[in-house]
Computed example of a mutant assay.
Amino acid sequence: GGVPGGSPVGSAAGSAMGSAAESAGGSVALAGPAEPARGHSRRLFIARTVAAGATAVAAGTVGYGTYSVLRGPRLKRITVPLAKLPRRAHGFRIAVVSDIHLGPILGRAHTQRIVETINRTSPDLVAVVGDLVDGSVADLGPAAEPLRGLRARHGSYFVTGNHEYYSGADQWVDHVRELGLRPLENERTELAGFDLAGVNDISGEDEGHGPDYGKALGDRDPSRASVLLAHQPVMIHEAVKAGVDLQLSGHTHGGQLWPGTYVAELANPTAAGLERYGDTQLYVTRGAGAWGPPVRVGAPPDVTVVELASTRA
């Protein structure tokens, strides 16, 4: 009664339709999880790209920070008016350098670059304000040798920093004297127009060689202008009591590495630059070297020429 071969054809057609539907159904079934998979891959790609970018930026920042130290300090110039400075001393220039930090990485070439930077300014006086070294004279004497080449009309002077007391302060004081610098160990000298004084770093107190302001500044003519070399900015409070007109300091490195800049600002009355405390002014250099890794970010090393100005000129 039926069409010949009808049943097999119908069965094949049904089977084909079923396979097509099954195939289509399979495609639909796979489409669901594919989209989340693609989304996960995209997020992973973005995360890896961001991480690679951050690594590249960090490496570039550290690289530039290292270069900024190894190429030598920048030269800065500031003018500081002093009411007591006589006209004849107007324009007197002091090259201030601190925190050279000679050590295993920053050696003789580092010192030579600093000396050349200073000598190019033809200063009247050089002030090395502590933390010259991170090691003994036996190890670092050759690295300090270029200091012998410093040139200034009224000589070069040195005061201790805290790192000298970790490195044999007495030996270093003797050695810098041999190199032609004059250490000011709680003492002063009278120059044309002002008194130059220097005090030991407060770290010397543990060895019985701390700062002595009475010895350095007592019995002097208070009508004369005075400039004090003192490594740490916190020593400004004693300088104010002693009637100092200008204190020159270092120690902070300006923070050296961000966010260390904020720490330096919290730990010191002035982290970098010139500020006034009553009748006393304080200038803090960022220093010419680096402690620990030879890297600086946001606080480039400097040598500063401080030009004294007479308000009577």
Score class of each variant (00 low, 15 high):
residue 35 E to H: 02
residue 61 T to P: 08
residue 54 A to E: 01
residue 54 A to S: 07
residue 32 G to T: 09
residue 34 A to D: 03
residue 55 T to Q: 08
residue 57 V to N: 01
residue 28 V to E: 07
residue 45 F to P: 00
residue 39 G to E: 15
residue 64 Y to L: 15
residue 43 R to D: 03
residue 31 A to V: 03
residue 48 R to D: 08
residue 40 H to C: 08
residue 33 P to G: 05
residue 62 V to P: 05
residue 57 V to Y: 01
residue 46 I to C: 08
residue 47 A to P: 01
residue 39 G to R: 13
residue 37 A to D: 05
residue 34 A to H: 02
residue 67 Y to N: 08
residue 29 A to D: 06
residue 55 T to W: 05
residue 33 P to M: 05
residue 58 A to G: 07
residue 66 T to I: 13
residue 59 A to Q: 06
residue 39 G to V: 11
residue 48 R to K: 13
residue 28 V to G: 05
residue 60 G to E: 09
residue 37 A to V: 11
residue 37 A to G: 10
residue 36 P to M: 06
residue 43 R to G: 01
residue 34 A to R: 06
residue 41 S to G: 10
residue 38 R to D: 02
residue 46 I to W: 11
residue 57 V to M: 04
residue 48 R to C: 13
residue 45 F to M: 11
residue 28 V to F: 06
residue 42 R to T: 12
residue 50 V to L: 15
residue 50 V to F: 05
residue 53 G to N: 01
residue 51 A to M: 08
residue 50 V to M: 10
residue 46 I to E: 07
residue 33 P to W: 05
residue 52 A to F: 00
residue 30 L to D: 14
residue 62 V to W: 10
residue 56 A to L: 09
residue 66 T to G: 15
residue 56 A to V: 08
residue 36 P to T: 06
residue 65 G to F: 14
residue 33 P to F: 03
residue 37 A to S: 06
residue 41 S to W: 10
residue 51 A to E: 05
residue 35 E to W: 02
residue 47 A to K: 06
residue 52 A to D: 04
residue 50 V to C: 10
residue 31 A to F: 04
residue 61 T to W: 08
residue 37 A to W: 06
residue 29 A to F: 10
residue 40 H to L: 15
residue 50 V to I: 15
residue 64 Y to Q: 15
